[in-house]
Design a protein around this nucleic acid. Structure first.
Length: 426
RNA sequence: GUGGGUGUAGCUCAAAUGGUUAGAGUGCCGGGUUGUGGCCCCGGAGGUUGAGGGUUCAAGUCCCUUCACUCACCCCA
């Protein structure tokens, strides 16, 4: 096939799937409303510097995964690889903090990273993103996580694991970095090739190396939790004890390092064993320095991002459960009847009754087959014979019963019936 | 960027060591009922076997190249 296809790593979301997506989004919006989180929508395209400064120049995302191009020789632009930087940019640009020092925001939409696609990883993927700005208190961390857990519960997601860690703050992290470096320095020869490289770039990454040799070495390494400053430790204690108070189970994973430079203190992930190599469905954490780094006031923040494709693949939803069916199918025989059917069909739709018909003078059998395929509740049948007698046939597609009704009042009859059945379903 | 796997009908897959017009299920269209769906039966349409080249009397099958998809590494949602 030499036809034009989607770009590598980009996916069409076909009609059978869209209802599932909408269902997730609706449930998210509902719970966000309960928590007072308001929607913000930012452009998918931003100036490249936003991400360079926000995410960090030495991260993989910025180094090799961004869709960046120069716009007509003028300016370097980038398709957003994540939402947080954009939300913060907007927050600063419109000085939202001036009107209210506290902001709870969410946004839903596509992100773009030019990685090699594989299971659970696409070049365009979608995130549900939540950001709390201006909240210093560890209870905000707990609130964000609790709302996330509740959302996943509402969606029917089971068998997931909440992993927690703290990355320290500007005071205690540098010291920790040094102690890790000196710890690993003597064991350099035993580390894998990747980890030796990591010593220079991001030594904390050695913690989540999958190489068994590296794992053995790192088990004895100092942990940030042990050397964290008093306030960071206290912060983490309040977050975790809040979760415990509400019966939310979690695992402290002192080896969890996140890939974006801006995280401080609390970080967390929701993981599952059903996603193959991409086991994280949600990632998040606190970023107390980011707003300031991006040119705003010194305002703390915490948030998370849910990977929608990964989430979808974990949910047991079936597309049949979301299928929509016409209430009534009109099967008409003959030119005059077809004309009447077309008019009736349109009038029913204008009244909010899902109606469908077949064009093109097909056989009754063919029209009935179509009605069946569409899973219509009723089929209305009439030809010249019925119209001459002023009647129409209404067939119940479930039990195959059929009644003869007055053509004059059929629109009202159907409308009444539809109204009654709707309230019954209520 | 690196490595493995796979490319045959819209979809899921067959076609022994190379051997005539590449099959089945499903879906689609039509018929079996001159005006009645599902189940059943029958028929039809739909393929340049991903593309290009090579070996051979003969290639879906073997060789080379290329592309796509996929899984994994790196990293992340």
């Amino acid at each position: 096939m030499s036809n034009i296809t989607t770009v590598k790593g980009f996916k069409d979301i076909l009609p059978d799937e869209t209802a599932k997506w909408r269902s997730i989004e609706e449930k998210a919006r509902n719970i966000f409303a309960d928590f007072g989180i308001r929607e913000i929508r930012t452009p998918v395209l931003e100036k490249t510097d936003l991400f360079r400064r926000g995410i960090g120049d030495s991260t993989d995302i910025v180094e090799k995964e961004m869709y960046t191009f120069v716009d007509q020789g003028e300016e370097s632009l980038t398709l957003r690889p994540e939402a947080t930087a954009s939300v913060i940019r907007s927050y600063i640009e419109h000085a939202l903090y001036a009107a209210d020092p506290l902001a709870k925001l969410f946004t839903i939409g596509p992100m773009f990273r030019r990685e090699r696609p594989q299971k659970g990883r696409y070049r365009q993927f979608h995130q549900i993103d939540v950001e709390y700005l201006g909240y210093d208190d560890p209870r905000a961390d707990a609130e964000v996580i609790m709302l996330l857990i509740q959302l996943l519960k509402n969606l029917g997601l089971a068998d997931v694991k909440l992993e927690m860690n703290t990355l320290g703050c500007a005071l205690c992290r540098p010291a920790f970095r040094e102690s890790i470096l000196s710890f690993l320095e003597g064991k350099k020869e035993d580390l894998c090739e990747d980890c030796r490289r990591r010593l220079n770039t991001n030594p904390l990454r050695v913690f989540d190396c999958k190489n068994t040799g590296c794992r053995r070495i790192i088990t004895d390494a100092p942990r940030l939790l042990d050397v964290a400053c008093g306030s960071c430790r206290k912060h983490f204690d309040v977050v975790t004890s809040s979760l415990t108070d509400f019966g939310i189970p979690f695992f402290v994973n002192t080896g969890m390092v996140r890939g974006l430079d801006y995280y401080t203190r609390t970080t967390f992930e929701i993981t599952t064993e059903f996603l193959g190599a991409q086991n994280a469905v949600v990632g998040g954490g606190r970023y107390d320095g980011l707003v300031k780094d991006l040119g705003g006031p010194d305002i703390p923040g915490i948030g998370f991002a849910i990977g929608m494709e990964r989430l979808l693949s974990l949910l047991p939803m079936k597309s049949e459960d979301f299928a929509i069916h016409p209430y009534i199918f009109i099967a008409a025989l003959g030119d005059y009847a077809q004309k009447q059917a077309f008019s009736l069909c349109h009038r029913l739709r204008l009244r909010g009754i899902p109606a469908e018909m077949a064009y093109g003078g097909k056989s009754l059998k063919s029209q009935m087959k179509r009605a069946n395929k569409l899973n219509c509740r009723y089929t209305l049948i009439f030809g010249d014979r019925e119209l001459a007698a002023g009647t129409v046939e209404l067939r119940d597609m479930r039990d195959s019963s059929q009644v003869s009704l007055s053509y004059q009042t059929i629109e009202e009859t159907i409308a009444t019936k539809f109204g009654e059945e709707q309230t019954h379903l209520g």
